[in-house]
Deep mutational scan, measured.
Amino acid sequence: MSIQHFRVALIPFFAAFCLPVFAHPETLVKVKDAEDQLGARVGYIELDLNSGKILESFRPEERFPMMSTFKVLLCGAVLSRVDAGQEQLGRRIHYSQNDLVEYSPVTEKHLTDGMTVRELCSAAITMSDNTAANLLLTTIGGPKELTAFLHNMGDHVTRLDRWEPELNEAIPNDERDTTMPAAMATTLRKLLTGELLTLASRQQLIDWMEADKVAGPLLRSALPAGWFIADKSGAGERGSRGIIAALGPDGKPSRIVVIYTTGSQATMDERNRQIAEIGASLIKHW
C-alpha cells in the first residue's frame, strides 16, 4: 500500500482519535458579512469528516447552483462504474471539434489522439474542462443518470439537468442544476469515506481534487503551510461562485467545507476574496 493510499485508508482512524471539535460562531459572522459585502445569498456548511456531524452552517438547506462543483460527483459516478466493471479508466475516447464547448483548455489539445477516461476526469476536476465533463456525462448516460446515481446514494436534493455550459445559467428560483450545502457536503463525505467506492477509487477521487489547479484564489489562499486540501470550485452566471473541499491540518483532511453564493453584482475577484476570507476565519478558529 502506498503512503497516499495509507493516508486515505486511515482518515477515519486518525479522526477518531482527534480531540473533540467545537464550532466557532466567528466564522458564521464572516459568512454573514460576506453576504453584506456581496449583496447576495451565501450558503455555508462545515462537517466533521469522521462523524458527519454538522459543526457550523448557514442557509444549509437553500438551493444554490452547483456550477462546476458537480464534476466531482460526476467522476465519482464514473469511478463507481469502474468498480462495477462497467468502465475502464484506460479506455480512450475520441471526439471532434464539434464536441468542444466553451472553456476546454485540455480537451482542445487532444482532438487528434483523444483522451482516456482517467485523463478526462483529471481534466474535468483539476482544470474544470467543460468538454471533458460533457464527454464523461455521455459515458454514464447524461445528466439524468448522474441525478439517479445521487438518488441511489441517498441524495434526493442534488440534481443535474443540463450539460456544460448551460448548467451554469443560475436563474433565480430555478431548481435545475442545483444542490443544497448540506446535501453536497453529505454526498461528498460519502464519496470520500464511505463504502460506495473502493479504496482505490476513493484515493483516485481525492487525488484529482488535491491536484486542483484553478481554485488557488479561494480556500487555498488562506491555508497555512502543512495543511491538506482537496477541492473543486465552480463559477456561473449572475454572480455565482462555489467551492467544495476536504481539508485539515497535519497533512490530512478532517472536515468537509461547502460554500456557495449566487445573485451578486460583485466582480469575480471580490467573490473570490470573500470566500478566501471565510476560509481564513475557519482556519483561525479551527
Rank of each mutant, 00 (worst) to 15 (best):
I45N: 03
K71W: 13
A84S: 06
T139R: 07
N50S: 09
D99G: 08
A182I: 03
H156L: 09
P181C: 01
G216S: 14
S122K: 07
D177C: 04
Q88I: 11
R41K: 15
L28D: 03
K71R: 11
L136P: 06
D129L: 01
M153E: 08
T198W: 01
R220Q: 14
A225C: 08
L146I: 01
L79T: 02
G226E: 07
N130G: 12
L219V: 07
D129A: 03
R220A: 10
E119Y: 02
A34T: 08
A280E: 09
I243R: 11
V258S: 05
G251Y: 04
V117H: 05
L199S: 11
T112Y: 04
D36A: 11
W227C: 05
T267L: 08
V78C: 01
P60G: 08
N50F: 08
H156V: 11
M180T: 11
S57C: 00
T179Y: 15
E164R: 00
L199H: 11
L282V: 10
S128L: 02
G216R: 13
E166T: 03
R41E: 15
D36R: 07
K109G: 06
L199A: 08
V72R: 02
E277T: 05
P165E: 02
G194I: 08
W208L: 04
I256D: 12
R189I: 14
G236N: 00
T116F: 02
T138K: 15
R273C: 10
P253N: 15
A77T: 02
P165W: 01
L137T: 04
A246W: 03
V257H: 15
L167Q: 02
T179D: 15
T131R: 08
D250L: 12
S104Y: 11
H151T: 06
I259V: 07
G90F: 07
F149T: 07
E195G: 09
L146R: 05
N152L: 11
T131W: 07
M115F: 12
R271Q: 13
L218R: 13
M153K: 06
W208A: 08
E26T: 13
K30Y: 15
S254Q: 01
G76Y: 11
I45P: 10
L135K: 03
F228R: 14
I171W: 01
L135Y: 03
P172M: 04
L282N: 05
L218K: 15
G248Y: 04
L218V: 15
V214C: 15
R81Y: 11
A34D: 09
E237R: 01
L146N: 02
P172D: 01
H94Q: 05
D174E: 00
R91G: 10
R189S: 14
N130V: 11
G236K: 15
V72H: 08
N173T: 12
D129G: 01
K213W: 07
A40T: 05
A211P: 14
W208I: 10
A230H: 06
L111H: 05
I54F: 11
A280Q: 15
C75T: 01
E87F: 12
L196Q: 06
G141I: 08
V29T: 13
E270M: 08
L100E: 06
L223P: 08
W227T: 02
F149P: 03
Q37F: 04
H156K: 10
G251E: 08
L89P: 01
L100K: 03
P249H: 12
A148M: 15
S233T: 00
L192K: 10
E35G: 10
G85I: 02
H94N: 11
Q37P: 13
G194A: 05
E166S: 04
H285P: 02
K109F: 06
D161R: 01
K109Q: 04
V157Y: 13
M67Y: 12
N130W: 14
E169V: 00
D250E: 10
E237Y: 10
H110S: 02
